[in-house]
Design a protein around this nucleic acid. Structure first.
Lengths: 135, 135
DNA sequence: CTCCATGTTCAATACATATTGAACTATTGG
DNA sequence: CCAATAGTTCAATATGTATTGAACATGGAG
């Protein structure tokens, strides 16, 4: 069921909700990972963030990010691929996402959840994915 | 007592805390008011935000803003004058404050607490202040 | 000194949040 | 069909948050 998940429209995205989403260290790290992955060949799956927290906790955070309009989730089989809604966010709040990500990247150490570097600093695990073929 | 309130150092300011502060509609409105008041002759007092909420609730929000490093509070007699820590924030998180404020200003209506326009849209009350003298 | 205004502190409340583990629902592959 | 995989949903918990009103502290004005 629920083949297509509910996403807010561009103009349903509201600033306080977005900021609240970004204020959580785990979610901020997720967003940074997605941003750093922007031009890669594949989107990231839930499982790629296994180092961040437990599965059920990740599902919770992904739902919050999706409902706030920060990410879009594409369902494909049993896996879900996530993308940052860059265009929508840049249109709605110009410059916001860039400055947040840049600020976050410059000093993550104090607040970043353990295991984030797995996704942030390398794409090695991508090649380790079953069925992965480089572009 | 407590002639000088505790303020965090510039490098003690952390991104998630700042975002969390800005994610509350009341605090976001306060910050916007302070930003819009930047080049005026006087700083804003607690009482200038009376329309936002009750006194004790405002004290709570101002403490949060101060402890997060967003505003600095100068005590003078029984009144407290507030300023945005623009330089510190711009140094620490370049572009962040501007984009947040610009985004907030562009569509406040949906989330802004009642009474905000009192401070945002006019400076009439400044002249109504006891002892106010225009520059 | 006494009144008044400004703002804080405290206790109580109602509510939201992040995190956990266990149970459940698909979907894929042998 | 069977087993494994990916991820959700639910219930429980612990903790943080915003908001309120009443009581308190402090400084200025008559």
């Amino acid at each position: 069921m629920a083949r297509a998940l509910a996403h807010p429209t561009r103009d349903q995205i509201v600033l306080p909700t977005v900021l609240d989403c970004l204020s959580d260290p785990t979610r901020l790290a997720i967003v940074c990972s997605l941003a750093g992955h922007d031009q890669a060949a594949t989107d990231l799956r839930c499982g790629d963030f296994a180092g961040f927290s437990g599965k059920s906790n990740l599902a919770y955070h992904f739902a919050r990010l999706r409902e706030a309009g920060l990410i879009s989730t594409r369902v494909q089989g049993t896996t879900r691929y996530m993308t940052l809604r860059r265009d929508d966010l840049d249109t709605r709040f110009p410059g916001l996402l860039d400055s947040v990500i840049k600020s976050a990247m410059s000093d993550m150490e104090p607040w970043m959840p353990v295991g984030c570097r797995l996704v942030c600093e390398s794409a090695d695990q991508l090649e380790a994915r079953p069925g992965f073929e480089p572009g």
